[in-house]
């Protein structure tokens, strides 16, 4: 069984994101880039499935510029078997990404696609669900526990009401939540070994589809700051302040 893991290169979650002075976008120069944390969790889950003997091959995929090789190499160092870079310099919307991934699905015929539930830059939370829709296959989103058996997956999903358990037939798209697992750290020998693993570049134009941009950004701004608060000395001052505001 093959597992496909789409990875997105994003600004590291520890970076305080700032807007360019000219308002054209966010500052990227010299900023640390990483694999989207949810995608790293997705990959870790695939590695564990393979280590249990339930999968044979794990392919990491990313769509973007040559710089994305860095994230693919990290994925290979974590344990993926091969990598595919779909090369484009355009910023693509989730529907186009999902369509591109569907082309790869048709070529690779995986039983599982595991991906992050959202990317921490655009926070869209769309691509997995769109891919499942285009593929006409089940989706199990926001998953914190995944069990495979005989062509099905049982997924525990983190939903607003608590934990929902669903069963889906494979092939399927799974999207990971934070508590699915804790990704491993890559060790130096693995980084060296990963350099020898295959990484194919496919120009986006070879996919036989045109990227489509539906939404345009009119402006970008920093959210309004809250007025500066006050530090109280003790609990009784706090209780009084809250009572004065009529909150308690």
């Amino acid at each position: 069984m093959k597992i496909l893991i789409p990875l997105k290169r994003v600004i590291d979650y520890n970076v305080r994101v700032r807007i360019n002075p000219d308002g054209s976008g966010v500052v990227r120069d010299g900023v640390k880039m990483s694999i989207n944390p949810f995608d790293e969790i997705a990959l870790e889950e695939a590695l564990r499935i393979k280590e249990r003997g339930e999968a044979t091959e794990i392919i990491v995929i990313t769509i973007g510029t040559q710089e994305n090789q860095q994230q693919l190499r990290t994925g290979l160092a974590m344990g993926a078997d091969r990598a595919i870079l779909i090369e484009t310099s355009e910023e693509l919307e989730p529907l186009t990404i999902a369509r591109a991934l569907k082309v790869l699905i048709d070529r690779e015929d995986p039983q599982l696609v595991i991906m992050g539930k959202q990317a921490i830059d655009s926070d869209n939370n769309q691509t997995g669900q769109m891919l499942a829709g285009l593929w006409n296959r089940p989706q199990a989103t926001f998953v914190s526990e995944l069990t495979l058996s005989e062509g099905t997956a049982t997924a525990v999903r983190e939903v607003d009401a608590g934990l929902e358990v669903i069963k889906v037939k494979l092939p399927a798209v799974i999207t990971s939540d934070l508590r699915l697992n804790e990704p491993r750290y890559v060790k130096l020998p693995e980084i060296m070994k990963a350099k020898k693993k295959p990484l194919d570049t496919i120009p986006f134009s070879e996919l036989g589809m045109t990227p489509e941009t539906q939404f345009s950004i009119v402006s970008i701004e920093t959210p309004p700051k809250r007025p500066k608060g006050i530090m109280v000395e003790n609990v009784s001052e706090l209780a009084k302040a809250l009572q004065d505001r009529g909150l308690i």
Partner: peptide
């Protein structure tokens, strides 16, 4: 909101 609410974008559809 994007970037965990650190940036607000106005988007046209």
């Amino acid at each position: 909101p994007i970037y965990a609410g650190n940036v607000i974008v106005t988007v046209e559809a």
